[in-house]
Design a protein around this nucleic acid. Structure first.
Lengths: 236, 236
DNA sequence: CCGCACGCTTGATAAATATCAAGTCAACAC
DNA sequence: GTGTTGACTTGATATTTATCAAGCGTGCGG
């Protein structure tokens, strides 16, 4: 049963860069057609190859984007609230290249693709916001390709940990925030090799206790990881 | 010495999806500020980390996009006439994530980024075209990431050859069209391994004679490569 | 014509990464 | 408490990929 989007949740969605520039009534028009749904863990929200009916916004929980071919599967990204996905497929009216599944119980706002395209056509500000968002996504994937082609898996892990470390505000210890096997797939390695890679980072002051990561020597780790804004900076 | 863009070359540029929807005077405004330049081979046209001053259009020759980190380098894409590059950086007004160099003597039309952003702001049709182009680019990189993470280098080579084969209209023999070491880097492998991979494809009816590729048994090769539109189709 | 440079190939070896097979441990259902 | 499940780890091994070191062949400058 479709449930209309309540005002407080709509406000969260509205806070996204994609929607802040929108006139009140245009945004209201989008939300009128939209609805919210809560999904249990491990539900596939979209499958690669399908056509786009809705722009999705995660407002609670966590969603994993993944892709598969010939019986193999790989994690492409992990999304946390509040973020959108399948914007490109929605705008281009093309089949999904990735699938999406909930990792935990999640709330998703579903905005009809047709409405998005309609507002996009009549509202120049929204069009600009879409371009900015698409540009950001494009650049994110280019960075990820560079990461894959230019670095070994150990270097990718080291840089990923530094990225998480910075995102948490440089605490000595922080939560990994996802299962290791998902991280492994995201980094393009097997769970077994992630285990071994973690060991290999010990000399650089990295310790794992369950899902708690401790970084005792950020300088050493940085020295090894050699992070670059042109690969690792999530902004710009 | 800047050289204004002549009408016949402007017509080529105009034929790009990005510009076809543009009003005559808007397009003329873009071309007024633009200029053409011919570059010798191996000239670096843009370097990663720099800021974008021009949208580039290749109208002759060939250009290679590449990226580097920590002394390593990898080919990200090869562009042939007529195509644009660094659209995302231009629109987002952000630093280049990739560098570009000419592979051979090449003609490049340089359109000031500021002009592009100006037209983008006042012309909804152009904004839409930019979105389409960005969406296409985004999807192309996502496919490339899937290719890298889900396939072995041998599978990547097989699929690449099938793609080229299809692009040439399924001829028994066709030109590779680039140096093998560049192809190797593009496919994420070393030149040595490309040599060996070519040998490994012989049982599937693939033969190389210099830069001429012969495919005697497309079915067998397809059977091995298992191409998927969600990775290999350059359109959609 | 010679010699050199350079791209390509080949073989031997090394490093990176994946696979397979146990084994440990914690969470959870009963 | 007991048993089961599933994630994680570890070691042994195999596969994939890279590196190193020649050698081959073509094209080009002198």
């Amino acid at each position: 049963m479709p449930i209309r989007v309540k005002d407080d949740e709509a406000a969260e969605v509205r806070a996204l860069d994609l929607f802040t520039g929108l006139e009140d009534d245009d945004f209201a028009a989008l939300m009128r057609g939209a609805y919210v749904q809560t999904f249990p863990p491990r539900i596939e929200l979209a499958s690669q190859g399908e056509r786009s009916d809705f722009l999705h916004v995660v407002t609670g929980g966590a969603v994993e984007m993944f892709a598969s071919w010939n019986g193999r599967e790989t994690v492409m990204a992990t999304l946390e609230p509040v973020s959108t996905f399948i914007l490109a497929a929605t705008i281009c009216d093309a089949p999904y290249l990735m699938s999406a599944r909930t990792l935990e119980k999640s709330r998703i706002v579903l905005v009809p693709s047709e409405d998005v395209r309609k507002i996009f056509d009549i509202n120049a500000d929204f069009a600009r916001a879409v371009v900015t968002e698409l540009g950001r996504s494009y650049r994110a994937v280019v960075k990820s390709t560079k990461n894959l082609k230019l670095r070994t898996s150990l270097e990718r892990l080291a840089n990923h940990l530094l990225q998480r470390y910075a995102m948490e505000g440089n605490p000595t210890a922080f939560e990994l925030g996802q299962e290791k096997r998902h991280l492994a797939s995201y980094l393009g390695m097997t769970p077994e090799n992630l285990s071994r890679a973690i060991r290999q980072l010990e000399p650089y002051g990295v310790t794992f206790e369950g899902n708690i990561v401790t970084i005792t020597n950020p300088e050493d780790l940085t020295n090894f990881a050699k992070p670059s804004p042109l690969i690792d900076d999530p902004w710009s």
